[in-house]
């Protein structure tokens, strides 16, 4: 086994260990989307009509529509949670252990990102299992097909979190991230309502939703769950993933980035 693989596996192992030790984090990550599914979806179901739009081939209940968005929500919050823990690690000094590894910084940060994505997959599939019990039952193969989509969307959202963690100097500033990044990304997307319905209310919000990478993460997951590929979403997700990952690695590069410039 090469040193590279040992290093990456060690980073995955630590992330998993921390995740399973923080049971509250697991339940908090699940409760949030379940509240939407069990409570909000029941309310919206009565007032929000959905026409037949791909990937659905028949009318679907609002619960069915909202599940991919809630999968994205789990990954969005997981990405930010990971970002928060990196800021915490940097404040306490634990981050330095990672950064003085002899392996390239881009490698260890990418491994950390992938580890965070794996953690998010555990949460998402647990949620999908509960959703199935609740009556949201995409084809069985859809769960398999959704895996690569979830990995890609997890990388995009994790990379955004990684980039933010490089820019946030103190843990206290993280509340701003919630207000200015997570909530706008989530609500100005197709996670909770289809964009064509949004356009009826606000063309501007519709346009923002269209350029929001989170929208495309959600649509990629939605189509994959029903064994289809949304090519536009795939292209945007891959493109924005490369962009944000590149920005995060740049920011953590001591010779160029934001972290190295600080005293």
């Amino acid at each position: 086994m090469t040193g590279w693989w040992i290093c990456a596996r060690g980073i995955f192992w630590r992330e998993m260990l921390r995740f399973f030790q923080q049971k509250e984090r697991f339940f908090a990550a699940l409760v949030r989307p379940l509240v939407w599914l069990f409570i909000f979806a029941a309310g919206f179901r009565a007032v929000l009509g959905l026409s037949i739009t791909p990937p659905y081939v028949t009318y679907v209940h609002y619960e069915v529509y909202v599940v991919p968005g809630l999968c994205g929500m789990i990954q969005l919050f997981n990405g930010m949670q990971s970002s928060l823990s990196m800021v915490y690690d940097r404040e306490t000094g634990a981050m330095r252990t990672l950064l003085v590894s002899p392996f390239p910084r881009s490698f260890v940060l990418s491994a950390k990102l992938v580890a965070s994505v794996l953690v998010s997959l555990l949460q998402v599939y647990t949620f999908l299992l509960i959703a199935r019990i609740w009556g949201v039952d995409p084809p069985w193969l859809g769960y398999l097909a959704a895996a690569p989509a979830l990995v890609l969307s997890g990388i995009v959202l994790g990379a955004i979190g990684l980039f933010i963690s490089s820019a946030v100097k103190q843990l206290e500033n993280f509340a701003g991230v919630m207000n200015f990044v997570i909530f706008p990304m989530f609500f100005a997307s197709s996670a909770l309502y289809p964009l064509w319905r949004v356009r009826e209310g606000s063309v501007l919000l519709y346009q923002i939703g269209q350029i929001n990478p989170f929208t495309h993460c959600v649509e990629l997951i939605r189509f994959a769950l029903y064994l289809q590929i949304n090519w536009l979403a795939l292209a945007v997700v891959i493109g924005s993933g490369a962009l944000f990952l590149g920005a995060a690695l740049w920011a953590y590069n001591p010779s160029r980035g934001l972290v190295g410039r600080r005293g």
Binding site: M1, T2, G3, W4, I6, C7, R9, G10, I11, W13, R14, L17, T97, L98, S101, P102, F103, V108
Partner: peptide
């Protein structure tokens, strides 16, 4: 576990 993590960061099994 801290040793194990440190070892992994240096490529040690």
């Amino acid at each position: 576990q801290n040793f194990r993590y440190q070892g992994a960061l240096h490529g040690m099994a």
